[in-house]
Design a protein around this nucleic acid. Structure first.
Length: 852
RNA sequence: GCCCGAGUGGCGGAAUUGGUAGACGCAGCGGAUUCAAAAUCCGCCGCCGCAAGGCUUGCCGGUUCGAGUCCGGCCUCGGGUACCA
């Protein structure tokens, strides 16, 4: 008897699909289309188990939809620009382009044996000039429609390496290579006007019914719509042309608790003042140290500088309040100036305690009225509180009521304006780096910023660059940088910043509909294939990538590159969990972290050691990340057991939305199971067709139940539960004594139901049982509803809510009959001891509860 | 700091969304087969207890005839935090 030999089977069926062109997507108006997309990978070097899991999920959906009558588009590409390529070039002297394309070749070679139903003819990498040239065309169209502009923004500046750092490259406020304290520095940069769409991006979340609620909630919070008050605080004496300071607040109800007026260190007034005040300049320089992330700003120790200026309280001109500069105030949000109310904001309170500024309660807890000491009192805006300091004479009212009342009061007296504000900021896309899409503009002394002509696109990256010194090689590449002005022809300079890699991934899904078109999209192809019916990717992209893509889809509609229906490009979203793995860490002489690969670490008694005996720190369950060296390579699994085992295993072991900690155990079990199914098929094929059988009806009922459960499981992303049903049905079939006809029907159906997960094995069983054509194209089995209904059911009996017994009743037994049977049950009779139940609850078809 | 999740046997997890907690798999234990082993097949397998029985879904409290599921308060872990992708 031949044995299960995945190496042979898998190669054979992959060749058969290739020859048939099974997965090549062609527009066909006669058939409904289905576009399945998994977030495309960064070409980090080798695929890891997370990729296998992610793409297998998409493949299950793609294969399932193809068998249920859809014309499926299932493409793959690479998100190929980004920092790791430059870091690799710096570390080993190669070129980012070589590194990237070599990695892509390796990863494609690793992915193909997995047998994904991908249309490889549509593949591209975002670093292909063909792709990024079209992205430059999009940029120019956006520019023309006013969707892109320039303004100043802060970056992390490494004063030793003289270069801009990514947030990731700032560790504890220091540059990752130089170790120097990072400074915040302003540069003129390009921005997409995503804020024009704040309201729309927020409102449209309600239409995304097939997105996870948590993602919509995260986006809602990120966009952060708030209603507040904008008002002016007049200075007691004008300075540097300022006679007042504009402030925005979402808590105008706390106006009477104002303690000081705070300016961002980047506020124009702060900058004007420090110019002729060395002491202040020094203090502000200290405040500008450290990274630019929100987390760093929020967690940094509160620093302040008293400007000596005073403003008058808008409601009481005699009340003078000091003006301070404070490091926790963001220039990007509101007006870059706040009034601080320490009693009801923890940051303000920490600041006031440190600098000995007054703390004034405006309201107290209704039940427990205590003045604020070390903890700010910040109840939900919907909770009623007792007002002790409010101009409108409120007593008990909620924060929201007080806010509304305050805004009305201030507007009536012309002291301020109620405004709606969004937290969402414009998207800064400039990066001072080489390995990205060049921004297609030229800076001319005479003409200013001049867009490159479309016929000159793509503006390609030069190949002759070096990475031996920090900074952007484009900046120091005269023959690339120095060009004639496209408008006047005089000497000018190219923009040397490149685009954020999020730009690349914000429209690739549209490009896949016509990957070789000579415009960014092809209208007919986009109209047919868009939208993405099912998008699958990691929860780590819940905010930025998805929000940026939603913006891009809108902007591409405005510029005529996508139809109106694609303003929301992803109809359904599934966020799979991450594959996690411990990180093994030591520190070098400078105290910087060094990460070790799992294969370098020997585990003993829960501790890890390197070959030389050094103990490593183990950080459990961390996201697999190239830079942390905790990536698990699936290639060994595929080589040992085959692709079907790898696919089956990554789906079977945990629910797809949950993180999974990778362990090697278990793959063996999956492999054994597939071998069992293969042998079972072989045994059935050798049965005597004429021999009598027993239990055909039971087997066929189990089969239809399995069809029903597995179909539902796949449709609802319950892959692990669907696989559990397939295990159970395999066990049933293995024990069955049914006739050959029934068993053949059962094994062929089993093969079909397994096909989305283990397509090669399934095709092989299909053809050995005499199935016609490719299983990949065979119609999906449909459960016969009549076979799903059982005649009798088992009802559990609870006594006082605890299960004590169970009864068999007819499926359609009346409530009265069930009560009668339940009350005559031994356990119930015993528990009642002759008495009457206090209450008898019968939930038909579910449960009986006897309350005594 | 702030926003969003997750927590169930030795392990991964299931539970028709308020109705039998532990499906299915892994590991383990026992048996069959074998000269022996591997492979395969059969059975057992939450915890305490000799048993009767009791306990059990991170912790504390609540709602309910009934809570893994709903509500309130904590703890731990993970994701995001706008230049990692």
């Amino acid at each position: 008897m031949p044995h299960y030999d995945p190496a042979t089977i898998e190669a054979k069926w992959q060749a058969a699909w290739d020859e048939d062109g099974t997965f090549i997507a062609r527009e066909d108006p006669a058939r409904p289309k289905y576009y399945v997309l998994e977030m495309f990978p960064y070409p980090s070097g080798r695929i890891h188990i997370g990729h296998v899991r992610n793409y297998t999920m998409g493949d299950v959906i793609a294969r399932f939809k193809a068998c249920t009558g859809f014309n499926v588009l299932h493409p793959m590409g690479f998100d190929a620009f980004g920092m790791p390529a430059e870091n690799a070039a710096m570390a080993s002297g190669g070129h980012p382009k070589t590194w990237t394309y070599d990695n892509i070749d390796t990863m494609v070679a690793q992915m193909k044996p997995l047998g994904f139903s991908l249309d490889w003819t549509r593949m591209f990498a975002t670093c292909d000039p063909e792709y990024y040239g079209q992205q430059q065309a999009l940029f120019l169209d956006f520019l023309e429609k006013g969707l892109v502009y320039r303004k100043n923004a802060v970056v992390n500046w490494d004063p030793v390496d003289m270069t801009v750092l990514a947030n990731e490259q700032v560790i504890d406020g220091k540059g990752w290579r130089s170790g120097a304290e990072v400074e915040r520095r302003e540069l003129t940069q390009w921005f997409f006007k995503i804020s024009d769409f704040s309201e729309d991006l927020l409102d449209a979340l309600d239409t995304l019914d097939d997105w996870p609620a948590k993602v919509r909630l995260m986006q809602e919070n990120w966009i952060g719509k708030s209603r507040g008050l904008r008002m002016s605080w007049s200075l007691t004496a004008p300075v540097h042309g300022f006679d007042a300071i504009d402030v925005y607040t979402t808590r105008p109800d706390t106006l009477m608790g104002a303690s000081f007026l705070g300016l961002s260190p980047d506020h124009p007034l702060a900058r004007a003042l420090e110019a002729d005040n060395p002491e202040m300049a020094e203090a502000l320089a200290a405040m500008r140290k450290g990274g630019t992330t929100e987390e760093a700003l929020e967690k940094a120790e509160k620093l302040g500088f008293d400007t000596g200026l005073k403003v008058r309280h808008p409601l009481n001109p005699d009340w003078e309040i000091p003006v301070w500069v404070a490091n926790f105030i963001l220039m990007d949000y509101g007006t870059g100036a706040i009034f601080a109310c320490p009693a009801h904001d923890q940051r303000d309170l920490d600041f006031c305690r440190k600098y000995d500024l007054p703390v004034i309660d405006t309201f107290l807890s209704a039940e427990n009225p205590q003045p604020v000491t070390t903890e700010a009192f910040v109840p939900p805006k919907t909770e009623p509180v007792r007002w002790v300091n409010h101009f409108a004479g409120l007593d008990i009212a909620t924060g929201q009521e007080a806010i509304d009342a305050t805004i009305a009061y201030m507007e009536d007296r012309d002291l301020g304006t109620g405004v709606t504000q969004f937290r969402l900021r414009d998207w800064g896309l400039s990066r001072q780096r080489y390995w990205g899409c060049p921004i297609p503009v030229v800076h001319c002394d005479a003409c200013g910023v001049v867009p490159e002509k479309k016929e000159n696109l793509p503006v390609t990256l030069p190949d002759d660059v070096s990475f031996d010194i920090p900074g952007n090689p484009l900046d120091r590449h005269p023959t690339w940088r120095d060009v004639p002005c496209p408008a006047c022809g005089k000497p000018a300079k190219r923009e040397t910043d490149t685009m954020d890699t999020f730009v690349d991934s914000s429209w690739y899904f549209a490009r896949f509909t016509a990957p070789r078109a000579e415009t960014p999209t092809d209208p007919d192809a986009a109209a047919y294939w868009m939208n993405v019916d099912q998008y699958i990717g990691g929860i780590e992209h819940a905010i930025l990538h998805l929000l940026y893509s939603r913006f891009f889809a809108r902007a591409m509609h405005i510029t005529g590159h996508l139809p109106a229906k694609s303003r929301e490009p992803f109809d359904a979203l599934f966020t799979q969990g991450m594959v996690t793995h411990a990180i093994y860490k030591t520190t070098d002489a400078q105290g910087r972290p060094v990460y070790h690969y799992p294969e370098e670490v020997e585990l003993r008694d829960g501790k890890g050691f390197l070959a030389d005996g050094t103990e490593v720190e183990i950080v459990p369950s961390a996201k697999m990340s190239k830079s942390k060296n905790n990536v698990v390579d699936p290639v060994a699994i595929i080589e040992k057991y085959g692709a079907d085992t790898a696919r089956w295993f990554v789906l079977s072991d945990s629910p797809p939305e949950r993180d999974v900690e990778w362990t090697a155990a278990g793959a063996e079990g999956a492999y054994k199971h597939l071998g069992r199914v293969w042998s079972l098929s072989d045994r059935i094929a050798q049965m005597d067709p004429a021999a009598p059988g027993d239990g055909d009806d039971d087997l066929l009922r189990a089969m239809h139940k399995t069809i029903f459960d597995v179909t539902g499981g796949i449709e609802s992303f319950g892959f692990n539960a669907a696989i559990a049903r397939l295990y159970a049905f395999t066990n049933t079939l293995a024990k069955s004594k049914a006739s050959h006809a029934a068993q053949r029907s059962a094994i062929m159906t089993l093969a079909q139901l397994m096909a989305p997960m283990t397509p090669h094995l399934a095709e092989d069983i299909w053809v050995r049982q005499g199935g016609e054509g490719l299983l990949a194209r065979a119609p999906w089995p449909v459960a016969d509803e009549a076979m799903l209904i059982e005649d009798t059911i088992t009802l559990p009996i609870q006594i006082n809510g605890k299960r004590k017994s169970e009864i068999e009743v007819a499926r359609d037994a009346s409530k009265e009959d069930v009560e009668k049977i339940a009350l005559s049950d031994d356990a119930v009779v015993k528990a009642l001891a002759g008495g009457q139940p206090r209450k008898l609850i019968v939930v038909p078809g579910r449960i009986v509860n006897v309350v005594i």
